[in-house]
Amino acid sequence: MTKQLGLQHHGNLVSEEFPPVLSYQNRRARDTVRVYGGTTPPVMTLQSDLALPPMAYKPLSRCVHEQLAEEFDRAIFLAGVPAQRETDLGTVTAIATTAALEFEELMVRCSISDS
């Protein structure tokens, strides 16, 4: 999803409850939980190269709520695992969970502006 939406690395989330593990990409160390974001569409995502242990869920949700939530009008949470092969890549899709989101999605699909 990060590549498909063209999101850029904006920072990292750090907690003592996260496993003390670093991963490497392009000869650079990467923190356990990284924040990526973009403006078209306006989206932020968290990415990790390993599954976080259940004891890390609360600190992660607290950090997102206390430090990041004010930046966004709504939150959509996705979970998944990285594709192992290029042929495993899928398309990023969404499902509306409220009437307002469904209406907004319909307006986007029909190229209707609300201004």
Score class of each variant (00 low, 15 high):
A96P: 08
F103M: 12
R109T: 06
T87K: 09
T91H: 04
P82R: 10
T98V: 01
V108A: 15
V81A: 13
A96S: 14
A96F: 01
T98Q: 00
I76N: 08
S61E: 05
F103W: 06
A94W: 03
C63S: 10
V92E: 01
I95E: 03
P82Q: 11
A96Y: 00
V81P: 07
A83R: 06
A99D: 12
A69M: 15
V108T: 10
I95R: 04
K58F: 09
G90P: 04
D88V: 00
Q67V: 01
L60G: 05
H65Q: 09
M55E: 15
L89D: 02
L101N: 12
A75I: 08
I95V: 05
A99H: 04
A94Y: 00
Q67L: 08
L68M: 08
R62S: 06
A94C: 03
D88Q: 01
A79L: 08
A56K: 09
T98S: 14
L52H: 06
P59T: 01
R74I: 10
M107F: 03
I76F: 11
V108P: 01
E105R: 12
A99T: 06
V64L: 00
Q67S: 08
S61Q: 08
T97V: 04
I76E: 10
E66I: 00
G80H: 09
V64S: 00
R62D: 15
T91M: 05
E66Q: 12
T98N: 02
V81Y: 12
P53Q: 09
T87M: 07
V81H: 13
T93L: 04
E70N: 14
V92R: 02
T97A: 01
E104H: 10
P82F: 14
R74G: 03
L89E: 06
V81G: 08
D88I: 00
V108L: 14
R85Y: 13
L106Y: 07
Y57V: 14
I95N: 00
V92A: 05
V64I: 07
A99W: 02
I95F: 02
L78I: 11
K58S: 13
T91L: 08
L52P: 07
G80P: 13
R85V: 05
G90Q: 14
R74C: 11
E105Y: 09
L68W: 04
E102R: 14
R85K: 13
E104Y: 15
P53S: 11
A79H: 09
K58D: 10
L68C: 05
A69W: 13
P53D: 12
V108W: 11
Q67E: 15
T93W: 01
A79I: 06
P82N: 13
F72N: 09
I76T: 11
A94V: 05
T98A: 00
V81N: 12
P53H: 12
A83N: 10
R85H: 14
A75W: 09
E104V: 03
E105N: 11
R62V: 12
P54I: 04
E104A: 13
H65L: 05
A69K: 15
L60W: 05
L106S: 15
R109H: 11
V64W: 01
Y57F: 15
Q84Y: 11
V92N: 02
P54F: 03
T98I: 01
E86H: 12
Y57E: 14
